[in-house]
Amino acid sequence: MQTEEMILPETKVTELPAACSREEEYELVYQRPSTMVDTTMHYCPGCAHSLVHKLIMEVVQEMDIQEQTIGIAPVGCSVFAYDYMDIDMQEAAHGRAAAVATAVKRLMPQHYVFTYQGDGDLAAIGIAETIHAVNRGENILIVFMNNAVYGMTSGQMAPTTLTGMKTTTSPDGRQNEIYGAPMKIAELMAQLPGAYFVTRQAVNNAGAVRHTKKALLNAFKYQQQHKGTCFVEILANCPSNWKMTPLETSHFIDDEMMHAFPLGDIKVPKGDLKIF
């Protein structure tokens, strides 16, 4: 019962530029994962969402689990994740992805289930659902995109907004005396017994991207073992709302964000290969 509204956007196949037209002379070293839809994304130039979407879909392709993977999209910029990831997906109400994922996984325990949520969605309105899902040790992966602002609604203060950081709702900079300190969500999740693997990564340089990819791959593999929740926080950028160029956002992540949110594994199962 595919309804008219659910006809998917037309895919676009871009012609190869002239420089690459003699295919036989080149070795193919990189291409879009087959699990990604070939279409134009709505994300702002330089935004990390498209990159992290691709990393997740690379893992799904490499593990050959497209048919067993269900994604849960949030409310926020990545609400349209189902336009890009070529898997069955559900779009959850704001903050409720972990509850939706709980039900999907409980009913289909052999499937791979992940949520993809931003900081407003997960750390503010959805913190209760997130904490309880992790505490129950739901065998899901939660991908937490922390860019320190509400992106979709144009840059309001989030629970993860850095101290002193100016946003549209903290025009003089976030004051901890009024709003508390930026919430260290990964550390909070690691406290819960149901959390099996908790890490914080970034994607603002090639090395960081490789680490994030490894973390996501590990998280999907842990899900096979039914050991508990995997939580991968990713420091992301928001060029439009930070009012920076993509390059400047990369420096900001290195110079500012990583001080508030240090990178690295926070909870790793004993005996497993550490990422760092």
Partner: peptide, 13 residues
């Protein structure tokens, strides 16, 4: 709030 969203997830599947 969680239970109705669990219903959403299960029904969607």
């Amino acid at each position: 709030v969680a239970s109705i969203n669990m219903v959403y997830g299960a029904a969607g599947a």
